[in-house]
Design a protein around this nucleic acid. Structure first.
Lengths: 135, 135
DNA sequence: GCACCTTTTGACAACGGTTCTCATTCCGGC
DNA sequence: GCCGGAATGAGAACCGTTGTCAAAAGGTGC
């Protein structure tokens, strides 16, 4: 927001805390809540404030570096993600997550929206079930 | 859950409050938060406690009489719904909602889950955009 | 290395939606 | 009318999240 500012959030400094959060996310492939991540960091010796964890995750979500999923109770859960558009197949038991793609579904969603005259369309799609280990 | 119990939640008495909530939902076709419904009832002269509104909506959701959608901030929003499986096309501007069906999508979700060995599959799918009036 | 300026951090308070508690009220049957 | 259990509601409690603000840390130019 200051003088020599090129990109969008160029004001993002690579601090110890931010690196720690990113590193922590890299270690899992399932969704974790902000508080879980906070605890995990604590346990690992990285002392990062809860506010900072929330702020960092939010920033990463805005930058599409993590996926956000709302648990049934409304709690936000985060997970590192690939940069292509995708959806999730999530195990209700252990949380194990698989990224899936469905070009046909994307087209269908767009088509349906257009038929009703909707513009600037986006969508959410998640599949839940019990993975082989939890069944 | 008591003695002569036929259906699921037969312990549901048709009280004034429950009728009022159901009636209120019938008047809209877009998603409303529990607190909005509470306010609406108040304004309409129906004095119903907030706890009761929450309880009633929860019960109706369990009975699949209403759809629940989590807003981005995690707030739960409710809407009366048809009894067939469907998804929603929701306007980000005014909240106007259209129920849509996509048999192909259902099949795709099931197939993807099966390919990964997942069982007891369910899914969520919502489409967002700006309706003709809000575009 | 050393100021200087800004961003970032973190302990804590505040917020807001939701759930819990429990005394009181209501419903339905006898 | 009376009884017993379900339902209600006012308020407290809960809990995830966001705001506050003084202190600490990066980055830059010297």
């Amino acid at each position: 927001m200051t003088s020599t500012d090129a990109g969008a959030a160029r004001t993002a400094r690579p601090t110890r805390q931010r690196r720690a959060v990113a590193e922590c996310l890299r270690r899992f492939d399932d969704f974790r809540s902000a508080q879980e991540i906070h605890d995990l960091l604590r346990q690992g010796g990285d002392n990062v404030g809860l506010s900072t964890v929330y702020r960092t995750l939010q920033a990463m979500a805005d930058a599409d570096e993590v996926d956000v999923l709302r648990a049934e109770d409304g709690e936000a859960r985060y997970r590192r993600c690939s940069d292509t558009h995708h959806h999730h197949l999530v195990c209700r038991g252990c949380g194990h997550t698989v990224e899936v793609e469905g070009p046909a579904v994307e087209r269908w969603a767009t088509k349906v929206a257009e038929e009703h005259g909707f513009a600037e369309v986006s969508h959410t799609l998640e599949i839940f079930g019990h993975c082989p280990d939890c069944a």
